[in-house]
Simulated scan of single mutants.
Amino acid sequence: MQLLDELRTHRLLAIVRGPDPAAALASVLTLASCGVALIEVSLSGADALAVIRRARAALGPHFALGAGTVLTAADAHAAADAGATFLVTPALAPSVAEAGRVGLPVLVGALTPSEVVQATSAGATAVKLFPASAGGPAYLSALREPFPGTPFVPVGGVDAAGAAEYLRRGAVAVGVGSPLDRKSDGKGKRVML
């Protein structure tokens, strides 16, 4: 899988997580059926590896299905075994080096310039600017000055209006979670799709 090409082409990485594995799987399948081509299932969700396995079986071997919140070497191996085609980390973690060993591209979380340097030196396919809401689109512009060739994917607090602004300021894609995979039940309660 050419993760960077996929990010540049589709510009959206949907992030699914939650306490209900059946709802998470339904969200993945709904997003895919609506044309979302890059989906990450966060390992912080309940039974996330099973969700990845079932989604892989339903979507086929070529769908860009990733595992997020991959922190340890064991997480990287488990995600690869479950059928993930890419990994996502919230920060520099042991899983970054392990991604190369299991042969998967990795989107590495970073916020500061020092972390951006470390992420790219560690082999990041792209840098997940996280949490993007900490600095907003202006911060992405500031980072792009010393790192003009670094592909950034802002994640964390990105909504529709923010997504357009991040893309305008040079992000290769944006990662969006709860605005995509949650809706209201009409009584103010948030539920999975």
Rank of each mutant, 00 (worst) to 15 (best):
L3Y: 09
L4D: 07
L4M: 08
E6P: 00
L7E: 14
L7W: 09
L7I: 09
H10N: 12
H10Q: 09
R11N: 10
L12V: 14
A14D: 00
A14M: 11
I15K: 11
I15Q: 03
I15M: 00
G18E: 11
G18A: 12
D20C: 08
A22R: 00
A23T: 07
A24D: 14
L25R: 04
T30F: 11
L31K: 14
A32W: 12
S33E: 13
S33R: 15
C34L: 15
G35I: 14
G35M: 14
A37I: 09
E40A: 12
V41L: 08
S42G: 15
L43K: 03
S44I: 12
D47N: 14
A50L: 05
R54W: 11
R56T: 07
A57G: 01
A57T: 13
A57F: 06
L59N: 02
G60H: 02
A64N: 09
L65D: 10
L65T: 06
A67H: 09
G68P: 13
G68R: 08
V70P: 07
V70T: 15
A73Q: 09
A74C: 06
D75E: 13
A76Q: 05
A76N: 05
A76W: 01
H77T: 14
H77E: 15
H77F: 13
A80I: 05
A82M: 03
G83C: 03
G83L: 13
P90D: 13
A93C: 11
P94C: 10
P94W: 09
S95T: 03
V96G: 09
A97I: 01
A97D: 14
G100F: 10
G100Y: 04
R101F: 08
R101C: 04
P105Q: 07
V106Q: 03
V108E: 13
A110P: 06
A110E: 07
T112K: 12
T112Y: 04
S114H: 07
E115T: 02
V117Y: 12
Q118I: 07
A119Y: 06
T120M: 15
S121N: 11
S121W: 04
T125V: 02
A126W: 08
P131C: 03
P137L: 14
Y139P: 05
L140K: 05
A142K: 07
L143K: 03
E145Q: 15
P146N: 10
F147H: 07
F147I: 07
P148C: 06
G149N: 08
P151L: 08
F152L: 00
F152K: 02
F152I: 00
F152D: 12
V153T: 05
V153E: 13
P154I: 05
P154N: 00
G157N: 05
G157E: 11
A160E: 12
A163E: 12
Y166C: 09
R169S: 04
A173S: 07
P179S: 02
D181N: 06
R182E: 15
R182K: 03
G186H: 09
G186F: 01
K187F: 14
G188F: 04
K189D: 02
V191C: 02
L193V: 12
